[in-house]
């Protein structure tokens, strides 16, 4: 970890200004990922700007019936917020599927979007990694890529975005609110994270100095039919091999509206609106779900150690949609998980 200076910002404008004034500045929320990256020398900011005094930790209902999550609200406070629990249970489940209670108590909602990949090669400074060191090559291709992506990868990078929360946020059509040197703007969630392409060093579409201030959830929360299914190597504190956020609106057995997003498979939370279109208007049956899964995975490509994810994802999509339809028992798999408080 290198030496750095630290400022505790008191206003968004001041924070942005401070960031712009320092060439290697970074905002710090809960620090649950950034501090690790600094200790590993993967990130070497020379100036940190603390955000906790910006008053962005509130969660409030919007006039249009939506819900605004302050960027500095913790993952734990968000998951257990009464409005989230009752109106956006998919988000509640996704958050609780991630990390550990200790981490969720520290980690912030804005920081969750900003966390970086867990690709092993990204963390090991001795190996080439285009995301860490552009142009050095991708070690995961041809290497140990069990945790890597099968969708939207490029020849430069097959890393995944590790978040669970973001998979639900993508499915729920969230809007990201940001402030920057050029003022405020909003970014559609699906446009926030990038695919790696030739520039895997860029995880998202934020401009230099821009700061996430909040996340706006639309009114519709799919609280009746939803499922967050996470498959991983152990029951807690493990990143998803594959996760699926499924949300349905049903009229009898007919699907009126549908959302489908995957985690652990791509450089960004992978929402597939064409697959959603295949669901809408159709009966909620295994055949329908299978068609949607096939659509999602039509372009999937395995890289050896992670090729199993294609079949695993297909099965997970079908299962998650089935669970969302039936809403009987929350996932056979999850039934074994010790329930959180």
């Amino acid at each position: 970890m290198n030496s750095f200076t630290f400022t505790q910002a008191t206003a968004v404008a001041g924070a942005v200004q401070d960031n712009t004034a320092h060439p290697d500045a970074a905002y710090i929320g809960g620090g649950t990922n950034l501090i690790d990256l600094m200790k590993e020398n993967v990130a070497r900011p020379t100036h940190l700007i603390g955000l906790k005094n910006l008053g962005l930790d509130t969660i409030e209902t919007l006039p249009d019936g939506g819900l605004r999550l302050g960027a500095l609200a913790t993952n734990a406070a968000t998951a257990w917020h009464p409005e989230v629990e009752s109106r956006y249970p998919l988000l509640n489940q996704a958050i609780l599927a991630g990390a550990s209670p200790q981490l969720r108590n520290m980690a912030t909602d804005g920081g969750n979007l900003m966390q970086r990949t867990r690709c092993y090669y990204f963390y090991d400074l001795t190996t080439p990694c285009n995301k860490r060191e552009p142009g050095s090559g991708c070690s995961a291709i041809g290497g140990y890529n069990r945790v890597c992506g099968i969708l939207g990868t490029s020849d430069s990078c097959i890393a995944t975005h590790p978040s669970d929360m973001c998979v639900a946020l993508a499915a729920l059509d969230t809007t990201v609110r940001v402030s920057g040197p050029n003022g405020e703007r909003t970014i559609k969630f699906e446009d926030f994270h990038r695919l790696p392409g030739d520039h895997p060093e860029r995880d998202n579409t934020l401009e230099p100095g821009e700061l996430i201030t909040g996340l706006d959830l639309p009114k519709k929360g799919f609280s009746q039919n939803f499922s967050y299914l996470k498959l991983r190597d152990r029951s807690s504190y493990a990143f998803a091999l594959v996760s699926v956020a499924a949300a349905l609106e049903l009229d009898g057995n007919t699907i009126i509206d549908a959302r489908l997003a995957l985690g652990g498979v791509a450089h960004k939370p992978w929402r597939d609106q064409e697959a959603e279109a295949l669901l809408i208007g159709q009966p909620a049956t295994a055949e329908t779900f299978g068609r949607a899964a096939a659509k999602v995975l039509a372009g999937a490509k395995g890289h050896g150690a992670n090729t199993f994810k294609i079949e695993l994802a297909r099965r997970a999509i079908v299962r998650a949609l089935k669970q969302a339809t039936e809403m009987k028992e929350v996932v056979d798999t999850n039934a074994f998980q010790n329930s959180n408080p």
């Binding site: 867990r118 092993y120 090669y121 963390y123 090991d124 001795t126 190996t127 070690s139 041809g142 290497g143 140990y144 945790v147 190597d233 152990r234 029951s235 807690s236 504190y237 493990a238 990143f239 074994f336 998980q337 010790n338």
Partner: peptide
């Protein structure tokens, strides 16, 4: 990774041992 002769999952996040929930 035998290309590097290095262990790649050198952390308790990635070297998995059972957690209470298991």
């Amino acid at each position: 990774d035998h290309r590097f002769g290095r262990y790649m999952n050198k952390s308790l996040a990635e070297y998995h041992v059972p957690v209470n929930a298991d």
